Amino acid sequence: MRCSLWLVPSEREHDALSCLMNFRPRHHRSKTHSSRSYPRFDPHVTLATFESSYKPKISLFLSPTTISVPVYFESMKVGNNYLSSLSIVVAKSRELMQLRDLVVEHLENNNMKDTSRSFPHMSLFYLDEKSKGDRQELGKQLERSERVRERTGRRVIEAALDCTLDGAEPEFDAMYGFEGSSIWLVDCTGGVEDWKVLEKQKLKSRRHDLRDVYLSRGEPFYSFSWPTNPVPVVTMPPSPRMGGRQPFLYGSNPLPMTPYYPPDPR
């Protein structure tokens, strides 16, 4: 049995990303493309893939007290094979790498080996190329339609996904990442549409008041990182290419406030 451990977004983020993943390019026709192209699957970041002679349990690899992990998008990548067709490269944050290292350590303790590649990434589409360049053309259409927007300097440093063009709720017009809120154990034997979810484990919130928050630029709020010490903050304007919203804030419980003005330095 070929199994994978997935880090999966919260329910609302999952639904938003699924809308984007339902996008099909103008030239797509189910009758002219391979039946393996554009299969439906759940948005996720693969933490590890391994072979097992028995049906494992998530408890072999993770504690029930494992906390949720933030995932940040860096760039879009077009691959040269089916399982790397088109994906979003994910930042190697400290939290994500620690979770992955923990999973790999437990795999090794159970005489299993991680065989996953290109960690970390989030696949958006799997595509069999009918003609050379189909995957590149798909990437170009995502960029032209601004479903994927990358902010670049000397290198690409972050990406935002607009899921609203395909039916997601308005606040998902610029997703810079998601909160990894659960772990799924998936049987990946066979084709993509044959994959089966064997078990799910919800992760504990990093703070009791955790929620996804989207703020318009310039909108003031109180940041309750510590409930007894509210800190007034004003959001900074994002790059014009990234739209009119800030990335969502994790671990904050913002409340409206009167405009905050920094102290006069004189």
Rank of each mutant, 00 (worst) to 15 (best):
H14I: 08
L20M: 09
L20E: 05
S34W: 03
R36Q: 15
R36I: 10
Y38C: 10
H44W: 03
A48H: 00
K55T: 13
K57R: 12
I58R: 03
F73K: 02
M76D: 04
M76L: 12
K77F: 12
Y82V: 08
A91Y: 05
M97K: 04
Q98Y: 07
Q98A: 11
T115E: 00
T115A: 00
F119R: 00
M122T: 14
M122D: 07
S123P: 00
L127V: 11
K130Q: 12
K132Y: 10
K132T: 13
G133S: 09
Q136P: 08
L138Q: 10
K140C: 13
Q141N: 06
E146K: 11
R147G: 08
V148Q: 06
R149F: 04
T152K: 15
G153E: 15
R155C: 12
E158K: 05
A159I: 02
D162M: 11
C163P: 06
E169H: 05
F172K: 01
G180F: 02
L185G: 01
E193D: 15
D194Y: 08
D194H: 13
K200T: 15
K202Q: 04
K202N: 11
L203G: 03
D209Q: 10
D209F: 13
L210D: 14
L210P: 06
F221L: 07
P232V: 14
P232F: 12
P232Q: 10
Q246T: 15
F248Q: 04
S252D: 13
L255Q: 14
